[in-house]
Amino acid sequence: METITLTGQIFQYLVTGITVGSVYAMVAVGFNIIYNVTEIINFAQGEFVMLGGLIMVFLHVAVGLPLILAFPATVALVTLVGVLLDRLAINPIRRPTVLSLIIATIAASILIKGTAMFIWGKDPFDLPAFSGRDPIIVLGAVIQPQYFWVIGFLVLIVIVLTFFFERTIIGKAMSACADNPDAASLVGIDVKRMVLLSFALSAAIGAVAGITMTPIALMEYDRGAMLAIKGFGAAVLGGLGSFPGAVIGGLILGVIESLGAGLISSGYKDAFALIVLLFVLFFKPSGIFGNIEISKIKRF
């Protein structure tokens, strides 16, 4: 009979928690990019993840494209969906208020989900793991090779985004829109183009999250809403708008869920995450990395 030591168990919970948390973190980063530029919460963020997974299944499994081609093709297609979302739903709104824009994203998420249901049906789909399914055993804990892909892509996204926002002119322009859209347009930044770019960017990140998580957790058309809720929780926990906050928030959420389910009670898994979220917001309403002064200026 198999047995496992307590250390091994805790290590296993941490590994699982960090992997699940990485997915939450990627969704949270997507929320933040759009929030920073537009001050809205894009409720279709979870649908980007779902589309990433399902389009990848289509290109890689059904069409038979090799992984190295299917991956960028999927990201490109989902980015296109993000661009279309902005052009068809966000941009045309004549007198945009935060509320009307948010409602438009909710409508878009329902539409995307419905379309995905028509295209792929209601069954979950599987994707082969990128580098096999032979688990690696460390300290009695089992690590799937796919876990490294998920965590690795989160790290990659963080590095690329940091470089983008701090070293490139477009990135800086986007940050300027986040700070003050009126002033940004006065110095010649095309704010509408930056909004478009933010949707494209967060769609791409959503797609990466979907592609990397599907080999672990399968993907079906209505997975998006749950991921959006968890990702939103992570973004709020870390402080809306803060990228380090999104990553830390996501990882904390994932690890708490996993440890709570393993050590205390699996029935209250979601409750632990929410209790921690409420607790943090109670003492620091702007989130761990959020700035109360900045959040006062924001309309949402």
């Binding site: 919970y13 699982t16 699940v20 997915v23 393993g262 050590l263 009670s265 699996s266």
Partner: peptide
């Protein structure tokens, strides 16, 4: 052990 209908991972429950 329990898990939610939309959960993506039950490794924690199984490890326990």
């Amino acid at each position: 052990e329990k898990y939610g209908p939309k959960d993506t991972d039950m490794t924690a429950q199984l490890t326990k």
